[in-house]
Amino acid sequence: MTRPVATAVGFVAVLLWGVLALLTVGSAPTPPFLLNTLCFAIGGTLGLVWTAVSGGLGQLRTVPLHVYVLGTLGLFGYHALYFSALRLAPAAEASLIAYMWPLLIVLFSSLLPGERLRAGHVMGAVVGFAGASLIVTGGSAGFRADAIAGYALALACALTWSSYSVMSRRFGTVPTASVAVFCLASAALSLPLHLLFETTAWPVGATGWTSAVLLGLGPVGLAFYVWDIGVKRGDIQLLGTASYAAPLLSTLVLIVAGVAAPTWPLAVAAALITAGALLAARASLQGG
């Protein structure tokens, strides 16, 4: 698989994350950790079936234990920290801090062997972050001193996903099938947290269950597999910058579905995110 093709495959994850919000709304009133349990179980089972059909189950035994630990901490840790941050801090500000992960991926990628961090990548990531901030905050945000614990968890959330993505690159020979184990382990860890901290509420009706299943098949399933391919074999700087399209796509999907209304920050954000992606793409293509 060529580098451009792997980058395109990785971007499929960003497209899938674009419907995450809509499907999450559709799965209400299921609480976060129960939804995690259901979705990660579906995503992990999907991966195991695919691996079995392709005759690759044996390769899972060759994956080192520390890689399984890293992958599980990445998937489970990100979601656990994010949900915890939203409980302790305003959603807009916590989400904005958590969404520093694409920028951090671009910056951390300079530590990878054979990767060169260029000015265009950094500029593109910063411009993309500015666009994402407009979407998340609606053009205004006020940080509160009493929510410092939530902000810290949101920052830990961003560090967790960016570190997982960059470290995945260092384990480029590990088969993508290992993501199935990450998902199943994340489901197993989410269940006790649900039982301890949440009141059980299953998805309601056909819409609720369809949304939950689609979450497990797409944004909390297939997305992790294609993301693994992208960060291991593709242009990780360009992929990191392009990830700022996820909140833009998510908002557009909600507008089309009639769940949200169009606003002026959205138009400005779209221009900024597009400009950021073009800056990063130019840096990748021209080598400077």
Rank of each mutant, 00 (worst) to 15 (best):
M1H: 06
T2N: 04
P4S: 01
V9M: 11
G10S: 03
V12P: 01
A13C: 09
V14L: 09
L15A: 10
T30M: 14
P31V: 09
L34P: 03
L35Q: 10
L35I: 13
T37R: 01
C39L: 06
I42A: 00
G43R: 07
G47P: 15
S54T: 13
G55Q: 14
L60G: 01
V69M: 11
G71Q: 14
F76Y: 09
Y82K: 12
R87N: 04
L88T: 03
P90Q: 02
E93T: 09
S95R: 02
L103M: 13
V106I: 09
L107I: 15
L107K: 07
S109L: 14
G120L: 01
A125P: 05
V127S: 04
G128E: 01
S133H: 10
I135E: 05
V136D: 00
G138Y: 04
G139A: 14
G139S: 14
G142T: 12
G150F: 06
A154N: 07
C157V: 13
T160Y: 07
S163C: 02
V166M: 07
V166G: 02
R170N: 03
P175Q: 05
T176S: 03
C183N: 11
L189I: 01
L195T: 05
F197W: 15
P203K: 06
G205E: 11
G205I: 14
T207Q: 03
G208P: 10
W209I: 05
L215Y: 07
G216I: 11
A223M: 03
G230A: 00
I236N: 08
T241E: 13
S250L: 09
S250F: 09
V253I: 08
V256P: 09
V259D: 04
A260L: 11
L266C: 12
A267W: 13
A283E: 14
S284C: 15
Q286T: 11
